[in-house]
Design a binder for these strands. Structure first.
Lengths: 128, 128
DNA sequence: ATTTCACCTGGAGTGCACTCCAGGTCAAGC
DNA sequence: GCTTGACCTGGAGTGCACTCCAGGTGAAAT
Protein backbone atom coordinates (compact mmCIF):
# COMPACT_ATOMS: atom_id res chain seq x y z
CA UNK A 1 0.00 0.00 0.00
CA UNK A 2 2.75 2.39 0.74
CA UNK A 3 4.60 1.33 -2.39
CA UNK A 4 2.99 3.98 -4.46
CA UNK A 5 6.37 5.57 -4.25
CA UNK A 6 7.28 3.54 -7.32
CA UNK A 7 9.89 1.58 -5.40
CA UNK A 8 9.54 -1.81 -3.85
CA UNK A 9 9.19 -2.05 -0.10
CA UNK A 10 12.56 -3.76 0.13
CA UNK A 11 14.17 -1.04 -1.90
CA UNK A 12 12.68 1.62 0.32
CA UNK A 13 13.93 -0.14 3.44
CA UNK A 14 17.31 -0.48 1.82
CA UNK A 15 17.40 3.21 0.97
CA UNK A 16 16.45 4.06 4.51
CA UNK A 17 19.11 1.75 5.92
CA UNK A 18 21.88 3.28 3.89
CA UNK A 19 20.70 6.79 4.58
CA UNK A 20 19.51 7.72 1.12
CA UNK A 21 16.19 8.28 2.78
CA UNK A 22 16.16 9.81 6.22
CA UNK A 23 14.31 7.84 8.89
CA UNK A 24 10.71 7.67 7.72
CA UNK A 25 7.88 8.54 10.10
CA UNK A 26 5.83 5.67 11.48
CA UNK A 27 2.16 5.35 12.36
CA UNK A 28 0.85 3.94 15.64
CA UNK A 29 1.85 0.36 14.83
CA UNK A 30 5.29 1.20 13.56
CA UNK A 31 4.57 1.16 9.84
CA UNK A 32 6.20 3.65 7.52
CA UNK A 33 4.14 6.65 6.49
CA UNK A 34 5.79 8.49 3.65
CA UNK A 35 5.28 12.21 3.84
CA UNK A 36 4.92 14.43 0.77
CA UNK A 37 8.43 15.51 1.54
CA UNK A 38 9.62 11.89 1.35
CA UNK A 39 7.68 11.36 -1.86
CA UNK A 40 9.23 14.43 -3.42
CA UNK A 41 12.69 13.27 -2.49
CA UNK A 42 11.96 9.80 -3.81
CA UNK A 43 10.94 11.37 -7.09
CA UNK A 44 14.34 12.99 -7.25
CA UNK A 45 16.02 9.73 -6.35
CA UNK A 46 14.10 8.03 -9.13
CA UNK A 47 15.30 10.59 -11.66
CA UNK A 48 18.88 10.25 -10.58
CA UNK A 49 18.80 6.50 -10.36
CA UNK A 50 17.08 6.07 -13.71
CA UNK A 51 19.66 8.26 -15.34
CA UNK A 52 22.40 6.06 -13.98
CA UNK A 53 23.69 7.95 -10.98
CA UNK A 54 25.37 5.53 -8.59
CA UNK A 55 24.03 5.36 -5.06
CA UNK A 56 27.26 6.73 -3.64
CA UNK A 57 26.74 9.97 -5.51
CA UNK A 58 23.08 10.13 -4.58
CA UNK A 59 24.26 9.91 -0.99
CA UNK A 60 26.54 12.87 -1.57
CA UNK A 61 23.61 14.78 -2.95
CA UNK A 62 21.38 13.72 -0.07
CA UNK A 63 23.96 15.00 2.35
CA UNK A 64 24.05 18.36 0.63
CA UNK A 65 20.27 18.58 0.80
CA UNK A 66 20.36 17.81 4.51
CA UNK A 67 23.00 20.42 5.13
CA UNK A 68 20.69 23.23 4.17
CA UNK A 69 20.30 25.98 1.63
CA UNK A 70 23.86 27.15 1.60
CA UNK A 71 24.77 23.97 -0.27
CA UNK A 72 22.57 24.89 -3.20
CA UNK A 73 25.45 26.08 -5.37
CA UNK A 74 27.14 22.72 -4.81
CA UNK A 75 23.95 20.89 -5.60
CA UNK A 76 23.70 22.83 -8.84
CA UNK A 77 27.26 21.86 -9.71
CA UNK A 78 26.54 18.23 -9.00
CA UNK A 79 23.34 18.17 -11.01
CA UNK A 80 24.89 20.04 -13.90
CA UNK A 81 27.68 17.54 -14.01
CA UNK A 82 25.21 14.71 -13.95
CA UNK A 83 23.17 16.39 -16.67
CA UNK A 84 26.26 16.38 -18.85
CA UNK A 85 26.73 12.69 -18.09
CA UNK A 86 23.20 12.02 -19.18
CA UNK A 87 23.74 13.98 -22.35
CA UNK A 88 26.81 11.88 -23.07
CA UNK A 89 24.89 8.70 -22.36
CA UNK A 90 22.21 9.70 -24.83
CA UNK A 91 24.78 10.57 -27.46
CA UNK A 92 26.46 7.23 -26.96
CA UNK A 93 23.18 5.35 -27.16
CA UNK A 94 22.28 7.15 -30.40
CA UNK A 95 25.65 6.33 -31.87
CA UNK A 96 25.45 2.63 -31.06
CA UNK A 97 21.82 2.56 -32.07
CA UNK A 98 22.81 3.83 -35.50
CA UNK A 99 25.27 1.00 -35.84
CA UNK A 100 22.56 -1.47 -34.87
CA UNK A 101 20.18 0.03 -37.40
CA UNK A 102 22.86 -0.27 -40.05
CA UNK A 103 23.26 -3.92 -39.15
CA UNK A 104 19.54 -4.46 -39.48
CA UNK A 105 19.60 -2.86 -42.92
CA UNK A 106 22.52 -4.99 -43.90
CA UNK A 107 20.64 -8.11 -42.86
CA UNK A 108 17.61 -6.95 -44.79
CA UNK A 109 19.75 -6.56 -47.88
CA UNK A 110 21.13 -10.05 -47.45
CA UNK A 111 17.64 -11.48 -47.16
CA UNK A 112 16.41 -9.49 -50.15
CA UNK A 113 19.29 -10.71 -52.28
CA UNK A 114 19.13 -14.34 -51.34
CA UNK A 115 15.37 -14.17 -51.78
CA UNK A 116 15.45 -13.07 -55.44
CA UNK A 117 14.41 -15.88 -57.83
CA UNK A 118 17.71 -17.01 -59.37
CA UNK A 119 18.69 -13.93 -61.34
CA UNK A 120 21.63 -11.58 -60.83
CA UNK A 121 24.97 -12.71 -59.54
CA UNK A 122 23.62 -12.48 -55.98
CA UNK A 123 22.50 -15.38 -53.77
CA UNK A 124 25.92 -15.86 -52.22
CA UNK A 125 26.81 -12.22 -51.57
CA UNK A 126 27.10 -10.71 -48.12
CA UNK A 127 28.07 -13.93 -46.43
CA UNK A 128 30.87 -14.41 -43.96
CA UNK B 1 48.78 -5.61 -26.93
CA UNK B 2 45.81 -7.55 -28.18
CA UNK B 3 43.45 -5.39 -26.19
CA UNK B 4 42.89 -3.06 -29.05
CA UNK B 5 39.56 -4.75 -29.15
CA UNK B 6 38.42 -2.15 -26.67
CA UNK B 7 37.83 -4.76 -24.01
CA UNK B 8 40.09 -5.77 -21.18
CA UNK B 9 41.97 -9.02 -21.42
CA UNK B 10 39.97 -10.43 -18.55
CA UNK B 11 36.74 -9.46 -20.21
CA UNK B 12 37.80 -11.12 -23.44
CA UNK B 13 38.72 -14.29 -21.61
CA UNK B 14 35.41 -14.16 -19.80
CA UNK B 15 33.53 -13.74 -23.08
CA UNK B 16 35.37 -16.66 -24.54
CA UNK B 17 34.67 -18.81 -21.50
CA UNK B 18 30.96 -18.20 -21.60
CA UNK B 19 30.82 -18.63 -25.36
CA UNK B 20 30.04 -15.09 -26.36
CA UNK B 21 33.21 -15.31 -28.36
CA UNK B 22 34.00 -18.57 -30.08
CA UNK B 23 37.40 -20.10 -29.27
CA UNK B 24 39.96 -17.57 -30.43
CA UNK B 25 42.91 -18.69 -32.57
CA UNK B 26 46.28 -18.88 -30.89
CA UNK B 27 49.79 -18.19 -32.13
CA UNK B 28 52.74 -20.55 -31.67
CA UNK B 29 53.01 -19.91 -27.92
CA UNK B 30 49.31 -20.17 -27.23
CA UNK B 31 48.46 -16.49 -27.11
CA UNK B 32 45.21 -15.25 -28.53
CA UNK B 33 45.29 -13.73 -32.00
CA UNK B 34 42.06 -11.95 -32.77
CA UNK B 35 41.07 -12.23 -36.39
CA UNK B 36 39.26 -9.48 -38.27
CA UNK B 37 36.23 -11.66 -37.93
CA UNK B 38 36.63 -11.66 -34.14
CA UNK B 39 37.15 -7.92 -34.14
CA UNK B 40 34.03 -7.39 -36.20
CA UNK B 41 32.01 -9.53 -33.84
CA UNK B 42 33.47 -7.74 -30.83
CA UNK B 43 32.38 -4.47 -32.39
CA UNK B 44 28.85 -5.81 -32.49
CA UNK B 45 29.13 -7.05 -28.91
CA UNK B 46 30.28 -3.60 -27.88
CA UNK B 47 27.27 -1.98 -29.50
CA UNK B 48 24.87 -4.37 -27.88
CA UNK B 49 26.53 -4.22 -24.51
CA UNK B 50 26.77 -0.45 -24.50
CA UNK B 51 23.11 -0.19 -25.31
CA UNK B 52 22.27 -2.33 -22.33
CA UNK B 53 21.66 -5.74 -23.82
CA UNK B 54 22.19 -8.39 -21.14
CA UNK B 55 24.77 -11.06 -21.83
CA UNK B 56 22.14 -13.77 -21.93
CA UNK B 57 20.53 -12.12 -24.93
CA UNK B 58 23.85 -11.52 -26.62
CA UNK B 59 24.40 -15.25 -26.27
CA UNK B 60 21.10 -15.88 -28.02
CA UNK B 61 22.21 -13.60 -30.80
CA UNK B 62 25.63 -15.26 -30.99
CA UNK B 63 23.95 -18.62 -31.34
CA UNK B 64 21.85 -17.37 -34.23
CA UNK B 65 24.93 -16.04 -35.95
CA UNK B 66 26.66 -19.38 -35.53
CA UNK B 67 23.70 -21.24 -36.93
CA UNK B 68 24.08 -19.69 -40.33
CA UNK B 69 22.30 -17.42 -42.74
CA UNK B 70 18.89 -18.92 -42.40
CA UNK B 71 18.68 -17.32 -38.95
CA UNK B 72 18.93 -13.84 -40.41
CA UNK B 73 15.21 -13.12 -40.15
CA UNK B 74 15.39 -14.03 -36.47
CA UNK B 75 18.43 -11.86 -36.00
CA UNK B 76 16.56 -8.98 -37.58
CA UNK B 77 13.67 -9.53 -35.21
CA UNK B 78 16.01 -9.60 -32.23
CA UNK B 79 17.86 -6.46 -33.27
CA UNK B 80 14.66 -4.60 -34.12
CA UNK B 81 13.32 -5.41 -30.71
CA UNK B 82 16.53 -4.23 -29.12
CA UNK B 83 16.44 -1.08 -31.22
CA UNK B 84 13.02 -0.32 -29.80
CA UNK B 85 14.41 -0.89 -26.30
CA UNK B 86 17.17 1.58 -26.99
CA UNK B 87 14.66 4.10 -28.29
CA UNK B 88 12.68 3.70 -25.08
CA UNK B 89 15.83 4.10 -23.00
CA UNK B 90 16.65 7.34 -24.76
CA UNK B 91 13.13 8.64 -24.31
CA UNK B 92 13.28 7.80 -20.64
CA UNK B 93 16.66 9.45 -20.22
CA UNK B 94 15.37 12.60 -21.92
CA UNK B 95 12.34 12.66 -19.69
CA UNK B 96 14.32 12.33 -16.48
CA UNK B 97 16.93 14.72 -17.77
CA UNK B 98 14.23 17.34 -18.22
CA UNK B 99 13.21 16.91 -14.62
CA UNK B 100 16.82 17.32 -13.54
CA UNK B 101 17.16 20.45 -15.63
CA UNK B 102 14.01 21.82 -14.04
CA UNK B 103 15.51 21.14 -10.64
CA UNK B 104 18.66 23.00 -11.60
CA UNK B 105 16.60 25.96 -12.73
CA UNK B 106 14.67 25.87 -9.52
CA UNK B 107 17.88 25.96 -7.52
CA UNK B 108 19.14 28.83 -9.64
CA UNK B 109 15.98 30.75 -8.85
CA UNK B 110 16.41 30.11 -5.15
CA UNK B 111 19.96 31.36 -5.26
CA UNK B 112 18.95 34.42 -7.28
CA UNK B 113 16.20 35.28 -4.83
CA UNK B 114 18.15 34.79 -1.67
CA UNK B 115 20.97 36.77 -3.25
CA UNK B 116 18.92 39.93 -3.88
CA UNK B 117 19.73 42.76 -1.43
CA UNK B 118 16.74 42.84 0.90
CA UNK B 119 13.96 43.96 -1.43
CA UNK B 120 10.77 42.15 -2.42
CA UNK B 121 9.01 39.66 -0.19
CA UNK B 122 11.46 36.98 -1.32
CA UNK B 123 14.44 35.68 0.65
CA UNK B 124 12.47 32.90 2.34
CA UNK B 125 10.63 31.51 -0.70
CA UNK B 126 11.30 28.10 -2.19
CA UNK B 127 12.93 26.69 0.90
CA UNK B 128 12.51 23.25 2.52
C1' DA C 1 -11.43 -17.88 16.64
C1' DT C 2 -8.50 -18.14 13.10
C1' DT C 3 -6.96 -17.11 8.70
C1' DT C 4 -5.36 -13.39 5.87
C1' DC C 5 -2.91 -9.39 5.03
C1' DA C 6 0.30 -5.77 5.13
C1' DC C 7 3.66 -4.49 7.34
C1' DC C 8 7.98 -5.05 10.82
C1' DT C 9 13.22 -6.64 11.98
C1' DG C 10 18.23 -8.08 11.23
C1' DG C 11 20.76 -10.45 8.43
C1' DA C 12 21.80 -13.50 4.59
C1' DG C 13 21.54 -14.35 -0.32
C1' DT C 14 21.25 -13.15 -5.34
C1' DG C 15 22.48 -11.90 -10.14
C1' DC C 16 25.13 -9.62 -13.09
C1' DA C 17 29.32 -8.58 -15.27
C1' DC C 18 33.25 -8.62 -14.63
C1' DT C 19 38.08 -8.59 -12.08
C1' DC C 20 41.67 -10.49 -9.53
C1' DC C 21 44.86 -14.10 -7.99
C1' DA C 22 48.61 -17.54 -7.81
C1' DG C 23 51.46 -19.91 -10.31
C1' DG C 24 53.39 -20.73 -14.92
C1' DT C 25 55.46 -20.07 -19.99
C1' DC C 26 58.00 -17.96 -23.44
C1' DA C 27 60.69 -13.96 -25.96
C1' DA C 28 63.31 -9.99 -25.63
C1' DG C 29 66.34 -6.57 -23.45
C1' DC C 30 70.30 -5.37 -20.28
C1' DG D 1 71.99 -15.26 -16.99
C1' DC D 2 68.45 -12.82 -15.08
C1' DT D 3 64.77 -9.62 -15.02
C1' DT D 4 60.88 -7.72 -17.39
C1' DG D 5 56.78 -7.98 -19.75
C1' DA D 6 52.93 -9.88 -22.05
C1' DC D 7 50.51 -13.42 -22.14
C1' DC D 8 48.56 -18.29 -20.20
C1' DT D 9 45.33 -21.30 -16.76
C1' DG D 10 41.46 -22.50 -13.42
C1' DG D 11 39.22 -20.74 -9.96
C1' DA D 12 38.03 -17.40 -6.43
C1' DG D 13 36.65 -12.73 -5.30
C1' DT D 14 34.41 -8.13 -6.04
C1' DG D 15 30.98 -4.34 -6.27
C1' DC D 16 26.69 -2.88 -7.01
C1' DA D 17 21.94 -2.65 -6.09
C1' DC D 18 18.97 -4.81 -4.56
C1' DT D 19 16.02 -9.05 -2.90
C1' DC D 20 14.81 -12.67 0.00
C1' DC D 21 14.22 -15.08 4.41
C1' DA D 22 12.56 -16.47 9.00
C1' DG D 23 10.15 -15.14 12.55
C1' DG D 24 6.97 -11.69 14.46
C1' DT D 25 2.97 -7.96 15.20
C1' DG D 26 -1.37 -5.99 14.92
C1' DA D 27 -5.79 -4.91 12.36
C1' DA D 28 -9.35 -6.72 9.35
C1' DA D 29 -12.17 -10.18 7.06
C1' DT D 30 -14.74 -14.86 7.30
Amino acid sequence: MVEETGFSLDTLRYYERIGLLEPVERNAVGQRRFSDHDLGWLGMVRCLRDTGMPIAEMLRFAKLVRNGEHTIPERITLLESHDRDVEAQIAQLREKQDAIKRKIHHYRDVVALSGTPVSCQAAEAGSR
